[in-house]
């Protein structure tokens, strides 16, 4: 099969459509298309942290079984939370065969999971399999002059055993930004939590986090922030209007997916982009948003 077995996760079908649209277009252009597998289910978004809880491993292991049924030994995710949960679950059962046996015995209508599926994030595939030089070669619209701050958040980097890069000093997104001839902007909050699911019952806490994180990115000279997590993107983008109501001096900052930035540089479908950013990219509205 020529392509990557792709696990979208729920958000990429709804809130984070742009992420999927742009990633699909980019990977097609790079010659390694994303192929969604059949009958996936919600990964559960957060990894269960108690020792005795196998119930909350069912969702992730069921997905790995579907990948196995698909004849594949690898699964690629775009969403950081899906990546983290699937990866940790696969390690959790591989380390203790007794747990795996119990889970397999419970899921008696399905194939037994054999523990062979590797979980990877798209950024890893870009770095390790395609290579930044190939990404640079594929670029048709240079992003020279654009200052881009990578926001890693938590789930790509922590805990260390599942992190795709160094948890304290990651460079993977900087390298991507440089490959597209843009200027990477380091800022102190790039690996600090956005507040995550606290947005459900403590929204004010997220607004505060957005203020700190984006103001720091702004002070460091960023024009745009990139991320790989639909929840970070939602929290940092959607609370800006509320933030402006309390702090009128706050300058809005576009927060987009890293694949959207790539799509602009490769001149393929990027999904919808915030219009202030389009001006900064010196491209006309609609140019990046190709035919769907």
């Amino acid at each position: 099969m020529d392509g990557l077995t792709y696990f979208p996760g729920c958000s990429l079908k709804e809130e984070a459509k742009e992420f999927e649209i742009s990633a699909m277009a980019v990977m097609k252009a790079l010659g390694l298309p994303l192929i969604e597998f059949e009958r996936w289910n919600c990964c559960g978004t957060v990894f269960s942290l108690t020792e005795d809880d196998l119930m909350h491993q069912l969702a992730t292991i069921r997905n790995l079984i579907r990948v196995q049924e698909n004849g594949s030994e690898e699964i690629v995710t775009l969403c950081s939370m899906c990546y983290n949960t699937l990866k940790r679950s696969s390690l959790f059962v591989n380390r203790d065969k007794e747990r795996l046996e119990k889970i397999n015995a419970f899921m008696d209508r399905e194939q037994a999971y054999e523990g062979k599926v590797e979980v990877r994030h798209l950024l890893e595939v870009l770095r390790d399999r395609i290579g930044w030089d190939k990404v640079e070669e594929a670029m048709t619209h240079s992003l020279e002059g654009l200052s881009v701050a990578p926001y890693y958040g938590c789930m790509l980097l922590r805990p260390r055993e599942v992190g795709i890069d160094d948890p304290d000093n990651p460079t993977i997104m900087q390298d991507l930004i440089e490959a597209l001839w843009a200027t990477p902007v380091e800022f102190p909050f790039q690996t600090e939590c956005c507040g995550s699911y606290q947005v459900v019952d403590r929204r004010e806490l997220i607004v505060e986090r957005t203020h700190r994180i984006l103001s720091s990115a702004r002070r460091s000279g960023a024009d745009v922030v990139i991320t790989s997590c639909p929840l970070c993107q939602y929290n940092l983008q959607k609370t800006q209007s509320e933030l402006k109501e309390t702090i009128p001096t706050f300058e809005e900052m576009p927060v987009i997916y890293f694949t959207q930035l790539m799509a602009v540089a490769l001149e393929v479908d990027s999904g919808e982009l915030p219009s202030p950013l389009l001006a900064g990219l010196a491209i006309e509205e609609g140019v990046g948003n190709g035919e769907r």
């Binding site: 009958r39 289910n41 919600c42 559960g44 119930m55 909350h56 069912l58 969702a59 069921r62 419970f106 899921m107 209508r109």
Partner: peptide
């Protein structure tokens, strides 16, 4: 809150893939 345990599907007398539709 669905944990994808598939218990609903196993309980269905109509052989519906209940968990799949919840997902």
């Amino acid at each position: 809150r669905c944990v994808s345990c598939n218990t609903c599907t196993k309980a269905c007398p109509q052989d519906i893939e209940v968990m799949d539709y919840v997902q």
